[in-house]
Computed example of a mutant assay.
Amino acid sequence: MIILGLDPGLGCTGWGVIAADGNRLSHVANGQVRTDSKAALPARLLELSRRLGEVLAEHRPDSAAVEEVFVNANPQSTLKLGQARGVVLLAAAAIGIEVGEYAARLVKKAVVGRGGADKVQVHAMVQRLLPGVTIAGADAADALAVAITHAHHLASARILQPRSP
């Protein structure tokens, strides 16, 4: 199964693609979509949508996972993050794939073992779980962590699913 993890942001959205075969995970690709901070909001959202469409078309994931919005101290930043997250959700839903949503604390706990882990710890654990990976940046590391979390949740759900007689 190919899983796309997404860490939404208006300035920079991280993405990471992994392959999951049971409990075995392998890195496929990762990167970041940056938008021009000087451009108008609609143009930035359109650029984000276009570039995510390219990632989706190239990697053709079976499933996607997105980090949930957290509330910033700055309401404007929270609104912009919410708008970018909407574009991310729409891009995945538009191609008809399942989209899982995970709180940042849950992702950190799933990958690092501690919900209060910092970005450096997440980055280090992603590198350990996906040996040999070159990570494009902090947002890409977070996106790979979201994909790993989704892979583990999907595997657990399959195990717990009752079998038909």
Rank of each mutant, 00 (worst) to 15 (best):
I3L: 06
I3E: 09
L4Y: 12
G9L: 06
G11K: 02
T13N: 06
G14V: 02
V17A: 01
V28C: 06
A29M: 07
G31N: 05
G31W: 06
G31T: 09
G31K: 06
A43V: 11
L46G: 14
V55D: 02
V55R: 09
A57M: 04
H59F: 03
D62C: 12
A64W: 01
A64K: 00
A65T: 10
V66D: 04
E67M: 07
E67K: 10
E68L: 13
V69A: 11
V69L: 15
V71H: 11
A73P: 14
P75C: 08
Q76D: 11
L81M: 04
A84Y: 04
V88K: 02
V88M: 09
V88G: 00
L90D: 11
A94G: 06
G96W: 00
V99N: 04
G100V: 11
Y102W: 11
R105C: 07
L106P: 14
G113N: 08
K119S: 01
T134S: 13
I135G: 05
I135D: 03
A138K: 13
A138L: 14
A138D: 11
A140E: 02
D142C: 01
D142H: 08
D142Q: 05
L144R: 07
V146A: 02
V146Y: 03
H150N: 03
A151C: 08
A151Y: 06
A155K: 12
I159S: 14
Q161K: 13
P162K: 13
